[in-house]
Amino acid sequence: MKIQTGIMSGLLGAAGITHFIRPKPFDSIVPPRLGNPRFWTYASGVAEVGCSALLAVPATRRLGGMASAALMVGVFPANIYTVVKHWDEPRARAIAIARLPLQIPLVWMSVSAATED
């Protein structure tokens, strides 16, 4: 297993579990038009834990990498929503904006895992 695959699996696993232990911060970044935020918090937590498990097993790593890349792209609108939501709060806005480019290496690590030999 490449180091970035292990990192990605660990990040997804930890983040996914955190969705269940401390759901409120995740609820707050769900765009209102999606409906019940807790549903989306738990659903994304399940998706993250599932992707983590798929990445950890060599036989499912390709699927896990592609699923992880899709998940990283899929949650990007929540990151944009967070920027808009905190636009009038300079510190929170700066943090939210700083998070946006972090999706690029996460997608890269996911795709890299999917193509791992």
Rank of each mutant, 00 (worst) to 15 (best):
2 K>Q: 15
2 K>H: 11
5 T>F: 02
5 T>A: 02
15 A>F: 10
15 A>P: 05
16 G>E: 02
16 G>V: 06
23 P>W: 03
25 P>I: 10
27 D>M: 08
28 S>A: 13
28 S>V: 13
28 S>I: 14
30 V>W: 00
32 P>V: 09
32 P>F: 07
34 L>G: 04
35 G>V: 03
36 N>Q: 07
37 P>C: 03
37 P>W: 03
38 R>K: 08
40 W>Y: 03
41 T>D: 02
41 T>K: 03
45 G>Y: 01
46 V>N: 09
48 E>N: 06
48 E>T: 07
48 E>V: 05
49 V>L: 03
49 V>K: 00
50 G>T: 00
50 G>V: 04
54 L>N: 01
56 A>L: 11
59 A>K: 09
60 T>Q: 05
61 R>M: 06
61 R>W: 10
64 G>K: 02
65 G>T: 01
66 M>K: 14
66 M>P: 07
66 M>V: 13
66 M>D: 14
71 L>A: 10
73 V>Q: 04
75 V>W: 09
76 F>L: 02
76 F>Y: 02
79 N>H: 10
82 T>C: 13
83 V>A: 06
86 H>A: 14
87 W>V: 12
89 E>A: 13
89 E>I: 06
89 E>W: 08
90 P>C: 15
93 R>N: 06
94 A>G: 15
95 I>D: 11
101 P>M: 07
102 L>T: 13
103 Q>V: 10
103 Q>R: 12
104 I>D: 04
105 P>A: 08
105 P>Y: 03
106 L>S: 07
107 V>H: 05
109 M>S: 04
113 A>Q: 10
113 A>K: 11
114 A>S: 12
114 A>V: 10
114 A>M: 10
114 A>H: 08
115 T>S: 06
115 T>C: 14
116 E>K: 08
